[in-house]
Computed example of a mutant assay.
Amino acid sequence: MWPDRRLLDLFKIGIPIVQAPMVGVQDADIMIGAARAGALPSLACASLSPEKARAQVGIVRQAVSTPINLNFFCHHAVDADPQREAGWKQRLGEYYKEYNVDPDKPLAFANRAPFDEAMCELVEELKPEVVSFHFGLPAPALLARVKAAGCIVIASATIVREAIWLEERGVDAVIAQGAEAGGHRGMFLTDRIAEQPGLFALLPQVVDAVRVPVIAAGGIADGRGIAAAFALGAAGVQIGTAYLRCPESKVSAPGRVALARAGDDSTVITNVMTGRPARGVVNRVMREVGPIAPEAPPFPYAATALAPLKAAAEAQGRVDFTMLWAGQAVGLGRDMSAADMTRALAGAALARLSQLAR
């Protein structure tokens, strides 16, 4: 019934939906719901230790026997810059005073580690059916080991040139990430954030440029968006924001309120939260310091100084410093279980595609 079965056959799943990996707000619970409905469930491993990732995969494997996707970052790690971080903390100084947070207290490092030897060994051990990468691909030797473990490899592209680069290096499918998408921009061959294309401009150009299946990501939160993506040549879609209000998500109570109130103009692309451009629901620090702040330390160090402020604000029921990564379709979100959400998305998409085919 789906007009393009390449992704279904590649992943061996029932519906062409990839539940997006979302750092910090999802774990095995959302994965299990999405998998039971026939989608490809994903686990964001960038902030997890190998032990925690192994434990999460174990929970999923005990609950379902479907394919899974493990997602990793491939950014170029940079050394901390104490002088720049001190300047960033000083820039946030008024917030420290307001929330009565000691600026001299040692801070826990905001961990967002790139794919490395330890995680590669974990992939070889767990053998997930799919491995996805953000910010490019790992070193050729590591990538070869992932493929030798029998894993299907997919990765994000934000411009056509990135999609071609990924295909040339052997990915099995490309995720076309439009500017509407929530979370970090997957850009790796460009840093021109103002030139990032929207999905419906990017998608058909990527489809024309590569031979592998293309997965559409960005601003898709209902059946109409899925059908439109297929009409433009996608073989499947990746959806994250629509799952944020599921009871299985780990979004805080204040965050859920903010998501429920959000509309089409509620998100921006900002570097304030982590040091790297990402789209999320506007909060106080994004509005007052950014959304783009040249003085923010590079990824992921900008998040370190914000962590104690986030904790202090959330204790008061506020999301002044909370990362609520979400796409521009956040206003289409609904309060449904992950399984029901996945089934509803697929059912509505098939109904719309059937109407278009008449």
Rank of each mutant, 00 (worst) to 15 (best):
E98C: 06
G327C: 12
R185F: 15
Q26K: 08
R287V: 03
L332K: 13
Q177R: 11
S354E: 10
M323P: 14
P114G: 12
A144M: 04
I193D: 11
A348S: 13
G178K: 03
A278F: 08
G223C: 06
T322V: 14
G87K: 05
R36Y: 12
Q205H: 15
I175V: 15
G87Q: 09
A179V: 12
K147M: 05
D116E: 02
M323G: 06
P41R: 05
G198P: 03
Q62H: 10
F115G: 08
M341A: 12
P140Q: 10
A163Y: 06
P41I: 07
A307W: 01
V282G: 01
R284L: 14
A155H: 08
H75F: 15
A118M: 04
A53T: 09
Q316P: 07
L353V: 09
A149T: 00
A149N: 00
H134W: 10
R192F: 15
L8Q: 02
A344G: 07
I152C: 11
A209Q: 08
I30T: 09
A344N: 03
R358F: 13
A262F: 04
D264W: 10
L324K: 04
V130C: 11
Q238P: 08
V130A: 08
L345Q: 02
L332D: 00
M31E: 02
A235C: 14
R112M: 15
F299Q: 05
D9P: 08
F133N: 05
L203N: 05
V78R: 15
A163C: 13
G33D: 00
I226Y: 02
G150R: 00
A110C: 13
L10P: 02
V64C: 10
K127S: 12
A139Q: 10
L345T: 03
T274P: 04
D102Y: 09
L142N: 03
G236M: 06
P294C: 09
G236T: 01
T267G: 07
D320C: 11
R169P: 14
R6H: 13
A302I: 01
M273V: 11
A55F: 07
Q83T: 12
G93A: 14
D102H: 05
R5L: 15
L259Y: 09
A194Y: 11
R54F: 13
